[in-house]
Design a protein around this nucleic acid. Structure first.
Lengths: 246, 246
DNA sequence: AACATGGTTGTTTATATCACAACAATTAAC
DNA sequence: GTTAATTGTTGTGATATAAACAACCATGTT
């Protein structure tokens, strides 16, 4: 499998621009990439020409350009899952009182592609476009349990409850499959619990997952099974709806 | 000014992937780009490796990947204008009853970066990420009138009222500057009128524009001055607020 | 004002990428 | 079911390209 080096470098720069909070300078960028300043300068100039990068006029540092926003809209609009799931997301939020989220798998990670916010003052919301690991989120584990995404080590630690042993995770996913829903019990963020189920298409292939997130104070361990039932019911309705597409 | 060819080609492919409604095949892509099939194949493979493109498993055609959504979120989150403008957008919608929009200039076009929807059944809304021309939108003309964006010919026609003569546009912008607000009187979409004003930063530099869009039936020519006053008032408040940043 | 830091632009050379073509993989046709 | 046709992937030399190095600017700093 052959790659185009300069394109790969350009895309890598986009990643770095995304990570850098307040933009990056050419020299800094060249160091991080392990390439020459001149090369970095020309690569960035090309990215800027196409609107993928831009230089902050006063700090003179580069950051991500507006072009990605435009492309993002196109991607989201063309995702049939998103369109179909919207009413189910609303229903989920109304029935549980918590923020509901829709996600797909992307590059071995969880990508949030839609959400409905709860009106509660204390709520746990994730923005569209957010990326999270699969092994410690309900949305991610729901997909892992019902489709064979590889477990990629190391399993990064976020809280004391994060599952870091591949064997443990495997057993956990087995249980998830049996009970039909995935739980994140403060494994990613302290004080946050989530429940999610996979979404299937007309071929019974996992295309994403849907679930709710809330503060542990409200989503107590006693209430979890009840909430899980709601999520499973809505999830099954969504999957049933998805079978009519295509 | 030198460009990196293969990176430029890769970014061009992203554009084409964005334009293609139902994905695009390698051969088709190579033809549109005027390059070899093999080159296109390798370029796309690289884009796919980084999540910027993906191939639809059943149609086997390539489309934009999820990575752009992730980057988009980062861009939007880091735009201070967006954060600051949100309450003003809401105010604008409430006071006019029409959808309000926030935009910036990008690559000589108008890029919508936020919006507040009106509850009205008949409303004129634009999604975040949408791109429109500058010369026939209120948001675009507001920026052109108060900063020197070049008039790039040809001025594309959208309706019978679209201004296509550079001289006419110049005069129109002059008037816009005098009256302090920009009007789009069915110049982009039939039956749609918009009013917008520029947003200035602490240096009195134009950083974007804010305005409302509504159906011509409601936004009658008689009501326009009144609506314009509202937009100008809110816009000035926003610009005043922006002066405190940085 | 001299210095230091960071960014851009020439120039040479190695090499990555291009085009061409052959091959593989699907799909379509018969 | 076999052939044909269309499309995508993979070698391979030739060449243009992009890498590195260095010199040169531009800004801001001491």
């Amino acid at each position: 499998m052959s790659e185009i080096q300069s394109l790969a470098r350009g895309l890598k720069i986009l990643d770095l621009l995304g990570e850098a909070e307040d933009g990056v300078g050419i020299t800094e960028l060249a160091e991080k990439m392990g390439i020459d300043k001149g090369s970095a300068s020309r690569l960035i100039a090309t990215l800027a020409n196409y609107g993928y990068a831009e230089k902050d006029p006063n700090s003179r540092r580069y950051r991500l350009g507006p072009m990605v926003v435009s492309l993002s809209r196109i991607v989201l609009q063309r995702t049939p899952l998103r369109e179909t799931a919207k009413p189910y997301l609303r229903q989920l939020m109304e029935q549980t009182g918590e923020c509901s989220h829709l996600a797909v798998a992307s590059q071995g990670k969880v990508l949030y592609i839609d959400q409905v916010e709860s009106p509660a003052t204390l709520r746990v919301n994730a923005q569209v476009g957010k990326i999270a690991p699969m092994h410690c989120t309900a949305l991610g584990k729901a997909m892992m349990a019902f489709a064979d995404y590889p477990i990629v080590e190391p399993l990064e630690v976020f809280t004391a409850r994060t599952i870091t042993e591949p064997g443990m995770l495997k057993a956990h996913l087995e249980q998830t499959r049996r009970q039909g829903y995935a739980v994140d019990d403060e494994e990613y963020d302290y004080g946050v619990r989530c429940i999610a189920v996979p979404v299937f298409d007309f071929r019974d292939k996992v295309v994403g997952s849907i679930g709710v997130s809330g503060p542990a104070a409200r989503m107590t361990l006693e209430r979890l099974p009840e909430i899980a039932r709601t999520v499973m019911t809505v999830g099954e309705a969504l999957s049933a709806r998805m079978r009519f597409l295509r």
